[in-house]
């Protein structure tokens, strides 16, 4: 079992959310939703390469690419429609906080990390579960990719 730890870029985002009042936190999540990167060309037309996160309220698809050992940096790709800003916001937080980090660092992120954003009251616990599910699936895909290698 890896020791649980939140990587610095993600910890910084959590601090930003925590420093705000609730309405501003929602505004920040909205800004994140706008910053979710477009899919690169080699993935854009290949829905079959993505896994749907069925726990999310709106369609969200994710896939990842594992880099070379020993660090095995992880590239994460999300796809979600513009009419799902909350889901896009969650995805963008995880993207900015985790993308490109070594696999072990991502696996060490605690599963209840989404609760630390301080959005649970406004967003509802139910919807926060969608974000927890994204994180869980990222971790599982990393583990699967490693065992397949």
């Amino acid at each position: 079992m890896t020791e649980q730890q939140i990587p610095a870029p993600l910890a910084e985002i959590i601090d930003d959310f925590q420093a705000m009042e609730e309405p501003d936190r929602l505004q920040l999540l909205l800004e994140f939703s706008r910053s979710l990167p477009e899919l690169p060309e080699h993935l854009a037309d290949h829905p079959e390469l993505f896994e749907q996160v069925v726990e999310c309220q709106s369609p969200l698809f994710l896939t990842l690419e594992l880099g070379d050992a020993p660090e095995q940096p992880v590239e994460i790709f999300f796809s979600a429609p513009p009419e799902a800003p909350t889901t896009r916001g969650f995805a963008a937080v995880l993207h900015e906080g985790l993308n490109g980090l070594p696999a072990d660092e991502i696996l060490a992120v605690p599963d209840d990390m989404p609760d630390q954003l301080g959005l649970t009251r406004a967003i509802t616990p139910l919807r926060m579960r969608g974000m927890a599910a994204m994180l869980a699936r990222i971790k599982r895909q990393i583990t699967d990719a490693r065992s397949a290698a």
């Binding site: 929602l26 909205l30 889901t87 406004a122």
Partner: peptide, 21 residues
């Protein structure tokens, strides 16, 4: 349903009421 959808753009003059909060 999506709590941020109104903020992305809404009918001019419309106010938002969220079912949950």
């Amino acid at each position: 349903e999506d709590i941020l959808l109104y903020e992305t753009g809404h009918i001019p003059g419309a106010v938002k009421i969220d079912w949950h909060t």
